[in-house]
């Protein structure tokens, strides 16, 4: 168990697929949300980020895909400095990253099938209708939702929405998946199912994951390593067991 000071420096190595160094972010003058975040994620690792509501977890992973612009700091994802990319270069990185939003962010006006076809069609040149159908079916099977293919998002339960959101990112075969509170708002049983799904997808596709949560059960199940955000910095880092021990102290 180690407690990190915010000036620890990390090397950019090919092994670290995500490398964040001294990340600062504020909204307006007196709302500094991130005050020097440092962490890195290794290839194939599941990193869980714990923190209270409003501690800036969502802001932090939105910075990773360039949805929010950091004020200061280095942000290397897949070997590229996110802040220095052109829009086209950023998009080519984004295609290799999946993002599951807190409320799944399904396109309301499209059916489940169209939600999956929409990104796939745009990013696969010369793909045939048969190949699209097969990819959609296979991906829905992976998340266990083949029967919902022609439903509209408004007809789905919270857990099903999360699964469809996950399928929509999986269909582009991402190397990294970012989960923003995948189990929040779900009942304990569905939460457990989603956590297990996250694990099985990581095993199957060999993806790297960053999982934001404040659900300890989900953290215990999915985490290889955990960092805790507090007051805008990485307050603690370690495995679930290490953190559990230190809590008792």
């Amino acid at each position: 168990m180690k407690t990190k000071e915010s000036n620890t420096s990390y090397e950019v190595s090919p092994q670290n697929i995500i490398n964040v160094k001294g990340l600062y972010m504020s909204f307006g003058e007196n709302n500094e949300v991130l005050k020097g975040i440092n962490f890195q994620v290794k290839k194939g690792e599941n990193l869980v980020v714990l923190g209270k509501s409003g501690s800036g977890k969502s802001v932090m992973i939105k910075c990773l895909v360039g949805l929010d612009k950091a004020d200061k700091g280095e942000l290397y994802v897949l070997g590229k400095d996110i802040a220095k990319l052109t829009y086209e270069q950023l998009n080519s990185i984004r295609l290799r990253i999946g993002f599951l939003f807190q409320n799944a962010a399904l396109y309301d006006s499209m059916s489940v099938r169209e939600n999956l076809v929409f990104p796939l069609k745009r990013h696969s040149k010369n793909i045939t209708t048969n190949e699209i159908d097969k990819a959609v079916m296979d991906t829905l099977k992976d998340v266990g939702l083949e029967e919902a293919i022609d439903k509209m998002p408004s007809e789905l339960s919270g857990g099903m929405r999360k699964r469809v959101g996950l399928a929509r990112t999986l269909i582009l075969k991402p190397e990294i998946i970012l989960y923003d509170e995948p189990t929040t708002g779900l009942d304990p049983i569905t939460s457990k199912e989603i956590s297990e799904l996250i694990l099985s997808i990581q095993k199957k596709n060999k993806t790297t994951s960053v999982i934001i949560t404040h659900d300890l059960a989900c953290a215990r199940l999915t985490a290889d390593r955990i960092i805790i955000l507090r007051d805008g910095v990485v307050f603690m880092e370690g495995s679930y067991e290490q953190l559990e021990q230190s809590k008792d102290e």
């Binding site: 984004r94 990253i97 939003f101 962010a105 309301d108 990104p119 745009r122």
Partner: peptide, 17 residues
Amino acid sequence: GSMKVTEQIDAMEVSAI
């Protein structure tokens, strides 16, 4: 507005659309 609030616009952005 509702697409923005429910992060659907962000979702398009991150899937490079």
